[in-house]
Design a protein around this nucleic acid. Structure first.
Lengths: 225, 225, 225, 225
DNA sequence: AATGAATGAGAATTCATTCAT
DNA sequence: TATGAATGAATTCTCATTCAT
């Protein structure tokens, strides 16, 4: 792993062209999945010949992986821009939720691509991409969770790693719920056909859920009763 | 939707054969995904001719769907057997978590199949399956959540539907983390390479997280500070 | 090596069909060489679909190899039928030469196929086929050379193995000269544009050459002078 | 035929570059054969652009042919340098055999190229190249055979042309046996796995074979018995 | 009911050659 | 002269599906 996934010719190519190729690839892959995406179609839609496509990429898989990496990078930037200001933890959570709700069509393709690798089973690739992708959000969350703990915004009887895991799991699921067809329907089954008309409600409920999970220790529970 | 996904011949066939065909299908589909599964291979492994396979099923997709329904049914039975006794909510949660951790090879194939439909995008099918599959757990959770609320085991300022959604999201993610390669790696990134050696810790942390989320209302928070 | 080069389906196929497929293959491969032969064309000319072709053979190369083996077998039968009677060595040589001259169109395709493997460079395959093919003629020649030596028809100061090698080299070259375009022209360059009109002359000259090579020892040379 | 096989631009090019291009071509063609050689790779390895390559040569085939001619020329020089001194015929034969045994890596590429045209079937080209290539050795051999006959070193009942043909056939086969993979294995089948460790034996046996073939007439045979 | 031979459209990939710069 | 980006026809191989028996 950790190789380059395009040939030098692609790096030399005009940036606009690179962008077109990757975006076209992301389109196809997110619409049809890896297997059903047709690289000849991608070439045609990107306005280049199939021969040139193969001058740029060794295989269909390499193109897919580069599209994926592009998607990761852009998603990452979204997260970073959301998290950059120095907010309290619940404010950050709220910002993330709202960012997810405003996921544009462009970003939703990235999420679909992400959902696509979820099925990969090649051991090395899976490990490589899991670390690459999940590492980003893990570090982002781990950072502010630790600070929150120090500052007393979060109870101290929790294991930050697990906490980050549960936190991310909820956000990831929400992310899918706003982008992938199946998860959308699942969301509706649970929360009603009109969830998507009621973003505020979603924010509120999730924050409520998180807040108490963040705040209370076992000790508090005993105290309270 | 809501059509039958096999021809009459399959219903007339010997139950043992039906079982073999479906289990073989589940094997292949969960191993290779829908696209890469080969129906001719499934027929061979099931010990019947490809011709007969097409006497049983209109298309490869129909076979897949029937395998999926079989998987759903069996998964459902697992959930029901776990939830049948009349436990308090946290005990139920614990039982579910432990059931997920003990997911056998057989069941893990079902989970992979489930992960597979997650990518479907045919509108009608997606709706049909989301309702079918998610409806099961939704009703299961909704039922006991409501009771828990009535009995005061759960705070009363929450919307049960959302609550069930967050609850299921955490369990679903955990389920994937114990079965699908990518999610396994993600789990390790967050919680350490040895998470899979430490089932108790996982149970404990998740219960801790859930308990406070279940228990405390906003009012409590104000009281506490 | 030493694997089977066709799938079971080919063995089950109708013998007439098998024959057609192999002969069509031999045609194409001998006309265009391995690289330029087109397996889709072979299928079409053999009157079967390309799909079926791949039910019969794993790869284009496997088909080629089976064609080759078929050719070897048939060539071998020609040699054996020529050599079966119990002749003196020069009579055998003469029969072989005449057989080569009468090489039919059918057999000439086999020779071209043989010339084709001559360029192979995959170590294992080369060894396997060299042993398989050359072993046949080697054993055929070695057998009767040994007998000839014992019976005094051939001088005793020679190493039979080398002798067989030189003998076969001359016959092989002659074989090519009667079948492969380039070697035909080479033959004409050396022996005149009309060599092919004068089979008797060829027989006579080669026998003359062989006879003295067979007959005289170094001792004889000294005696003579 | 007898056209030029490069464009004027190639003739105007720097001699060092010409040399590089041809040697690189010879490398590729002898390693992979005509079909599998990649002209874009040849250009890259020769350090020029593919565009320039096509300024130099009309087609891939033309490049091949020029490489071939270069190879012929160099092989020819080897033969000539071996044959230039005024030796008796068996001494010449010995020198040729030893030259073949010492074929360097460079020359072996020429031989492989030669083996490659052996499969050509375009009538005109075949004739042209057969005459060009075989003419060289034919004239070389014919010349000294004639002299040998006049001087009584060779029996007089033979047809020099056929004699030259048989002589060259033996040497050509030996040449292939020292360079082409398949023929190497064939050599081992006939003469033992260790032939290549025993050059002297090879020289001796072939000379023995040739000597008697050269020396004795039918008349001698009758005399002797 | 059951077989499995047969089909052929479709997809990934290669590479000789062209052409704008 | 020199470049190398660009082309696209051609080829191998796969597999869902059909159909004669």
């Amino acid at each position: 792993m950790e190789q380059k996934h395009c040939k030098p010719a692609f790096e030399r190519a005009d940036p606009a062209r690179r962008e077109t190729v990757l975006q076209t690839g992301i389109n196809e892959f997110s619409q049809h999945g890896f297997e059903n995406a047709n690289i000849n179609v991608i070439a045609k839609n990107a306005g280049i010949s199939i021969g040139l496509m193969y001058k740029y990429f060794e295989t269909k898989e390499d193109l897919f992986i580069l599209c994926l990496e592009q998607a990761i990078e852009e998603l990452n930037q979204v997260i970073e821009s959301v998290l950059q200001s120095d907010d309290k933890i619940l404010v950050r959570a709220e910002k993330l939720i709202r960012a997810i709700q405003q996921t544009s069509g462009k970003e939703s393709r990235y999420v679909k691509l992400y959902n696509e690798i979820t099925k990969m089973s090649d051991e090395d690739k899976v490990r490589y991409y899991a670390e690459k992708i999940e590492g980003i959000s893990y570090r982002a969350y781990a950072g502010f969770l630790e600070r929150a703990k120090e500052e007393g915004d979060v109870r101290d009887d929790l294991d930050e790693r697990f906490f980050a895991f549960f936190f991310d799991s909820l956000l990831m699921t929400l992310q899918f719920s706003y982008t992938c067809d199946y998860y959308r329907e699942r969301f509706k089954v649970y929360c009603g056909d009109d969830v998507f008309d009621n973003d505020e409600k979603v924010v509120e409920e999730l924050l409520k859920f998180l807040e108490s999970a963040f705040t209370f220790s076992r000790g508090d529970i005993q105290k309270l009763h």
